[in-house]
């Protein structure tokens, strides 16, 4: 049985693991954590720019996975996408709460991009590294304004109006950038 699980495609393997989590298996959650915690932490870090807060988000996300595993709907997203989306959602909520706090330090939007990464994930397999490098290469070909727009929408949760204001362009232009960026994204990732 164990052999056959290993032969399954990753998505199926993670669905099985998630269903085990839904039944209360802590080792299954541990497997998910080993696979996805770096991604979760990195996304939270990119959104929040704060290591401590990113760790809180990582903790929250895996607590949510523990509680909500049974609500996962495989029609709508892969396990990885589901987890990434939960992370984004939780991080942006925290970001907004921070912005509402009167004593909050007004961090520069782009501070996060200059974050000095000291603990780069070392457990990446060569295949993973290759996959990430292909993705990065593809994203390099995205026009900078499209990418900036996508990053503001995804990692900052900005509305089109806020994007327009941050990029100092008319709202219609921001909307066009976002749409074209997404279209280009689809073309990039669907190209053979």
């Amino acid at each position: 049985m164990g052999e056959s699980v290993k032969e399954q495609p990753p998505q199926l393997e993670w669905e099985t693991t998630l269903s085990q989590v839904a039944l209360g298996s802590e080792p299954a959650l541990r497997r998910l954590y080993q696979e996805f915690s770096a991604l979760v932490f990195s996304v939270a870090l990119k959104v929040l720019g704060d290591k401590r807060e990113a760790e809180e988000i990582t903790q929250d996300v895996f607590a949510k996975i523990w509680r909500l595993a049974s609500s996962y709907d495989k029609r709508k997203a892969s396990v990885k996408s589901w987890i990434v989306m939960m992370t984004r959602s939780a991080s942006i909520d925290k970001l907004r709460k921070r912005a509402r706090r009167p004593d909050s330090d007004s961090r520069n939007t782009y501070d996060v991009f200059d974050y000095q990464l000291q603990d780069v994930y070392e457990q990446k397999s060569p295949a993973q590294e290759r996959a990430v490098s292909i993705l990065q290469e593809k994203l390099e070909s995205l026009r900078p304004e499209y990418r900036a727009c996508l990053e503001l929408a995804y990692f900052k949760g900005y509305s089109q109006k806020e994007i327009a204001s941050a990029m100092k362009v008319p709202e219609g232009t921001a909307k066009t950038y976002l749409r074209r960026g997404l279209l280009r994204l689809r073309q990039l990732f669907n190209s053979k």
Partner: peptide
């Protein structure tokens, strides 16, 4: 979007 995220972040271990 997940691929976009994976290509946009440096994987860092908590």
């Amino acid at each position: 979007l997940t691929k976009f995220v994976e290509g946009s972040v440096e994987l860092t271990k908590p």
